[in-house]
Simulated assay, not measured.
Amino acid sequence: MHRGLKPLLAVAAVTLAAGCGAPSDPEVTFYSHGNSVEVKPAQYCDPTGQDCSKPPADPAGELRMTGRDPLQISVPNEVASTPWQVAFIYRDIAGNEVESRSEVFPPDTRHAYTLHLPPDAARIEHVEVQQFSALLTAGPDGGVQFGIGGSWVLNVHE
């Protein structure tokens, strides 16, 4: 083998190995009453909201839950290191659809959240973990709003 070719092959091997181990989009885990599902992002963009990965063909996870069981949500460091919140839809006791959300969690303060339904709720139907980006838009009241850079969606069935 030619002396100049050996270092070139070593560099090529390292480059190929690095490409094979490229990180994938972070997944969020939803867990309730012995059942869990890991969900890929329905949307995942860089902090500026510009460079976004292609969403999966079926962007929503599915999980069976009964009644008012709590839902545990675990997020990876890529989410926990930024502001994030949990938005959800539930049915109240009268059967009406109600939208609600958690507080916004500041960066590096938590990797998990347990969603407990409010007293008037009968069951959870839809949950979305929302990761905020640095992209600002004008708010309806003249203030500013942060864009959603990442979202992980869960549909709940009984």
Rank of each mutant, 00 (worst) to 15 (best):
V86T: 03
A94W: 08
Q85V: 03
P118Q: 07
W84V: 10
E99K: 06
I93F: 06
P70E: 03
M1Y: 12
A121C: 06
P76F: 02
V144T: 15
A122I: 00
E78Q: 15
R91N: 14
H126Y: 14
V14L: 15
G150P: 01
S36D: 12
P106Y: 09
S74P: 06
Q130R: 15
F30L: 06
Q50L: 11
D92R: 04
L9G: 03
G149D: 07
V37A: 06
A57M: 02
T66F: 09
Y90P: 12
A13N: 07
A13T: 08
R64A: 15
G139P: 01
T15E: 07
A42S: 14
A94Y: 11
K40R: 13
F132R: 08
N155Q: 14
E158F: 05
V144F: 14
G19Y: 04
A60N: 07
M1H: 10
R101E: 13
L136S: 04
G95H: 10
Q130G: 02
K6V: 15
Q131W: 00
D51C: 05
S32Q: 08
N35G: 03
Y31W: 12
G95C: 12
P47K: 06
G143Q: 04
I89C: 00
G19T: 05
S36L: 09
H111D: 07
Y113D: 14
D120N: 15
I124T: 08
Y44T: 09
A60R: 15
Q43M: 07
A42M: 04
P23H: 09
R68N: 13
G139K: 06
V79C: 03
H2N: 02
Q145T: 02
P83Q: 03
A22I: 14
V153I: 13
A18W: 06
W152H: 11
R68P: 00
P118S: 05
A17Y: 14
K6Q: 05
L9I: 07
F30H: 05
V28N: 01
Y113T: 05
C45P: 02
V98Y: 05
P70G: 04
T109H: 02
A138E: 08
I148A: 01
A87L: 03
E128F: 00
K54S: 14
A60L: 08
Q72K: 11
